[in-house]
Simulated assay, not measured.
Amino acid sequence: MGRRDYEDDPDAPEANSLVPAASAVVVDERGRVLLQRRVDNGMWALPGGVMRIGESLPDCAIRETFEETGFEVEILGIVGTYTNPRHVFSYDDGEVRQEFSICFLARPTGGQVRVSEESTEVGWFPPSEVDALPMVGSIRKRVDDWRNGVMPALR
């Protein structure tokens, strides 16, 4: 399913759903961050996705990280809360989702690199290499918040 991101775009379609989601900044012992290249938009992103009924947001981040990258993780903290109503995702099936996501800080505890049906590549990147990667603004903000040690203001 294709996806298009709109952020602060006056031509963006109006949201018709709000779905809780979680992502993770996974950092290894060498200080590298785990990223995946998404199938739906070809951009590099943090692992993450939609929370399921009966699941907590931290459990969602753990599950999504394993499903999308092959790594088991332990949650260490929260990078930030991201709820910009001017940021929506438009999907081919007509859903236009408003962003509502908690981004967690995590460390790997096991597993190995593997792609999923949602990713074409998975890799570990030094923070200095992340700026050169194609990435949507909302994901880059999460990575920058982690790198800068900034807890974003709640809106």
Rank of each mutant, 00 (worst) to 15 (best):
V19C: 08
R142W: 03
V27S: 00
D28P: 03
D40Y: 13
S90V: 10
D145S: 07
D93Q: 03
L154W: 14
V88M: 08
G94M: 10
D92K: 02
A21G: 11
A45W: 04
M135W: 03
T65R: 05
Y6L: 06
M151S: 11
G77H: 12
A22L: 11
V79N: 01
E64M: 13
V39R: 04
E55I: 05
R140P: 05
M43H: 06
V130W: 05
A153S: 12
R38H: 13
V27E: 11
L18C: 05
P127E: 12
V79S: 00
E99P: 02
P134V: 00
P20S: 14
A61H: 08
T109L: 07
R32Q: 13
Q36W: 06
Y82G: 09
G137I: 05
A132E: 13
L133S: 00
E68P: 08
F66L: 14
D28T: 04
G42C: 00
R140Q: 06
R86L: 15
C60S: 13
D145G: 09
A15T: 10
P58M: 04
I139Q: 02
R32S: 11
F71C: 07
V25T: 02
P126F: 15
V136A: 01
E64Q: 14
V96K: 04
I78H: 03
R38N: 10
T81M: 12
T81A: 04
R155W: 14
G123K: 01
R114M: 15
G110P: 10
E118Q: 05
N148W: 12
R30K: 14
R32H: 11
C60T: 15
P10S: 07
E72S: 15
D5G: 01
S119K: 00
T69M: 10
H87G: 02
S90H: 12
E7Q: 12
P126H: 14
V79A: 07
R107T: 15
M51P: 02
N148A: 12
G94V: 11
C60F: 11
E29V: 08
V96R: 04
M135Y: 01
G80T: 04
R86V: 06
V19N: 12
P127M: 11
R97H: 09
D9K: 02
G42K: 00
Q112W: 13
I62N: 01
R32M: 11
